[in-house]
């Protein structure tokens, strides 16, 4: 998709019918993300327990750290025991696992995937690349601090982290959620302009709408 595809235009249908297409209006949502107030305390803590015990993961595996995510599904580590399951689509996932460094190109896709997820949603950043750039810190096309572009809930350090430390990271995330501190979605909505400004600074060819969930 290029930015030209987002322009308003007149299209001729298969049977000669003419109609106007405005992709920004027709294909994408034009609403800003909203903050969602938690419910009352007792009920919310029950819901948080359910959210913590049912982590549905969207694995974003463009970095090398993603290779450590696969063993979690295998008999040896078997993360399913802890209520961690993989979902194939962003719509149904709650946890976005960033598997290592992000280039300018992949950051764009990460943002789109993140915004398509329904909240409460959490971001787990994997490997030292997401914290300070790691071994790619002076590369011309990777970002150094993921936190500037998306609200990260948990960092799992290492280059790369072993599957055991991933499991430990997920357990820590569960603890955060149960304490009611997994409010990354609200943080993103509150500081939306700041996040967007940061994202646009990196992504020069911004050929997508600002809000696309």
């Amino acid at each position: 998709m290029s930015s030209k595809d987002l322009e308003k235009r007149r299209v001729t249908g298969p049977d000669g019918e003419q109609f106007d297409v405005d992709p920004m209006q027709d294909y994408f949502c034009q609403e800003r993300p909203k903050e969602h107030e938690p419910a009352n305390k007792v009920w919310e803590s029950f819901l948080n327990w359910a959210r913590a015990e049912s982590l549905w993961i969207l694995g974003y595996g463009t970095g090398c750290g993603a290779i450590e995510m696969r063993p979690l599904m295998t008999p040896r580590f078997d993360a399913y025991r802890y209520g961690i399951q993989w979902r194939p689509t962003p719509r149904q996932s709650n946890v976005l696992v960033i598997g290592g460094y992000l280039s300018v190109k992949t950051l764009k896709r990460v943002i789109r995937s993140y915004e398509q997820m329904q909240g409460p949603k959490y971001v787990v950043a994997l490997g030292s690349c997401t914290i300070n750039g790691g071994m790619y810190w002076d590369s011309y096309n990777t970002i150094n601090r993921l936190d500037k572009y998306l609200p990260v809930d948990i960092y799992i350090t290492g280059c790369m982290p072993r599957p055991e430390s991933l499991l430990a990271g997920f357990e820590a995330l569960k603890k955060l959620i149960k304490e009611g501190k997994g409010e990354g979605q609200n943080l993103y909505a509150r500081n939306f302009d700041e996040y967007k400004a940061n994202q646009k600074k990196i992504i020069r060819d911004w050929d997508m709408p600002d809000y696309n969930w």
Binding site: C29, L47, A50, R51, E53, G83, N94, Q118
Partner: peptide, 16 residues
């Protein structure tokens, strides 16, 4: 686990 997943899905705060 299916029960927990069900509660979680019904309890998500946003939908489109």
């Amino acid at each position: 686990q299916p029960y927990i997943d069900l509660v979680k899905n019904y309890a998500l705060r946003s939908n489109i």
